[in-house]
Design a protein around this nucleic acid. Structure first.
Lengths: 127, 127
DNA sequence: TTAGTCACTTGTTAATAACAAGTGACACGG
DNA sequence: CCGTGTCACTTGTTATTAACAAGTGACTAA
């Protein structure tokens, strides 16, 4: 069951399409949102109010790691436990998460952004 | 043929999660990209270099219409043909498409943004 | 009459997501 | 030492969605 042909075939040279092949799904950017908020542990992501399925979370984390947007480092031994953090490259996603957050706030009545996250996002937004 | 229960259940009140439920997939924002570029006809979207499957395109267009991001209007009779255009609300997606485009340009070597689109995106970006 | 275009729709199969349960390594309490 | 519990996953199974292929209806032009 070696599952890794991993063709890495771009469907086009458009930067939008390329980006969407990596982060264009319902879950990846909510994980990035949580990483921006400072969450680090598997169980913390799992416990979010959206209720991400565990296998989806595990798969996305390895994908983000492979793309060098996230690092996985042990924060304790016995038993070994890992913490996930955004790399510098991963943090450059903040403006896209911010733009989406702004758009969502305007267009979904009642939707409110975590204040901690809002500060982070406003640091990148200008207007 | 019961058409749609249409639960419209938000998985959370987070504006990011809400937005991703609407536009968080591999195709929706490439359609929006093409709309921003001024494409209007079904066949034009279908003919893009990414090669969107026709049933996916049809489904996304009704979804965008239902969300009032896109209007569908006949531009000729005999036979009737439609043109698709962004609404004012739809055009407010420009900053998120722009942020994604910028990110993709930085992170996918060789990816180049359509110049026409770049102008549009730079009008919304500041930095 | 025949061929062709456009904008879809309708299958059918392949891939992915969602849900449920299980696993291994350890810590702690009795 | 033994059972119970936690954490971070993995493995299966079913449901939903995407991809691919083909067909349809309303025309136009030859």
């Amino acid at each position: 069951m070696p599952r890794k042909p991993k063709a890495e075939t771009r469907r086009s040279n458009c930067p939008i399409a390329c980006s969407l092949d990596l982060v264009g799904d319902r879950w990846t950017l909510v994980i990035v949102r949580d990483l921006l908020r400072g969450l680090t542990k598997y169980g913390e992501f799992l416990g979010g109010e959206e209720g991400i399925p565990t296998n989806v979370l595990a798969e996305r984390l390895v994908r983000l790691e492979e793309a060098r947007l996230v690092t996985k480092t042990p924060y304790q031994q016995n038993p070994v436990r890992f913490s996930y953090e955004l790399t510098a490259k991963g943090r450059t996603l903040a403006p896209v998460v911010g733009a989406i957050a702004m758009w969502g706030q305007k267009n979904f009545p009642g939707a409110a952004l975590d204040p901690e996250l809002r500060k982070l996002v406003e640091a990148h937004a200008n207007s």
